[in-house]
Design a protein around this nucleic acid. Structure first.
Ligand SMILES: [Mn+2]
Ligand SMILES: [Mn+2]
Ligand SMILES: [Zn+2]
Ligand SMILES: [Zn+2]
Lengths: 156, 156
DNA sequence: GACTAATTTATAATAGTTCTAGATTAATGG
DNA sequence: CCATTAATCTAGAACTATTATAAATTAGTC
């Protein structure tokens, strides 16, 4: 689990300096399940560290990614999103508002490459569901909360 | 299945004009399993239609996407990729060279949202495997062709 | 073949990200 | 503490994919 303390330890281990700017980015990521973009994090961090540069936020995110402390996703075309939760989990992307929810805790079925001779060695995978979130449920399904409980399966 | 003829039919149906530029883009997409970017398609099409503008390629792709004739993916951060195969299928993204392979024809398991009360209505989903392709197999696994036959499963 | 709205083109604008050079500072050790 | 110095930070320029604009061209229609 990502914590500012853990990130600081990793930075020390790898002979990197601990700066107020970096700590602020770590804190902004701690427990953050919103899959923020670099700009999101910049805006959030700039409140506690006025004058921080975007470059610093970008650089810190890149380092954390190299260290394997955050994972980068490309849910949308226009910006990258970061997730301090590096454990494998699925995501739901609302195609209306762009919000991304984690999926965890249930029976999600299995995902595997066919045992056949596919010319590829897979290290990991990611599953993204596209649809509509709670708040965007849509005009026709204004009966919130029920609509949500939807199951989706496939056997491609 | 996407064909230039089918795209032309759809363009006629929706009162859009058939131009040499558009036909060239249709042809470039026909049977294309490389998941090309707009720039890839521009370069390819520019050979047969010198002077074509990038804007035309972008506009045509956008229209095809609206018509549901191609699907747009965000495998990488820096550009969008298009797939004329709109049937649901999985993908393998080589994290070395960026090539994307389709996955189809075997037993891939099932994917579903937990039947519980997840506040989300899913319309579709996409599965992406990350790893190393045939050609990029890596130094340690130069024994190509065997490495490939790898199976990956999960029950998160 | 003429008409006209749709399309195309070249180019400017935009947005996210990366690069750069000079100013600042964390870490080290006397 | 203070001095040293390599690492870091900042502001802003540069870069890249994409979108917007406006004027020129053309597909479709009669
Ligand atoms: Mn997540
Ligand atoms: Mn595909
Ligand atoms: Zn939403
Ligand atoms: Zn490869």
């Amino acid at each position: 689990m990502f914590t500012a303390e853990h990130a600081i330890r990793r930075y020390r281990e790898t002979r990197r300096k601990i700066t107020p700017q970096r700590i602020a980015v770590f804190r902004a990521l701690e427990g953050n399940t919103s899959h923020p973009s670099a700009e999101d994090l910049f805006e959030s961090v700039a409140r506690s560290v006025p004058g921080i540069s975007r470059a610093t936020v970008y650089n810190t995110l890149e380092t954390l990614r190299e260290l394997g402390e955050v994972r980068e996703y490309h849910f949308q075309a226009d910006f990258r999103q970061f997730d301090p939760n590096t454990a494998p989990h699925h995501h739901c992307l609302c195609t209306d508002c762009g919000r991304v929810h984690d999926v965890h805790g249930g029976d999600f079925g299995t995902v595997r490459l066919p045992a056949g001779r596919l010319p590829f060695r897979a290290d990991s995978f990611s599953v993204t569901f596209y649809g509509h979130c709670d708040r965007c449920g849509g005009a026709k399904s204004s009966r919130r909360g029920r609509v949500a409980a939807h199951s989706h399966s496939s056997h491609m």
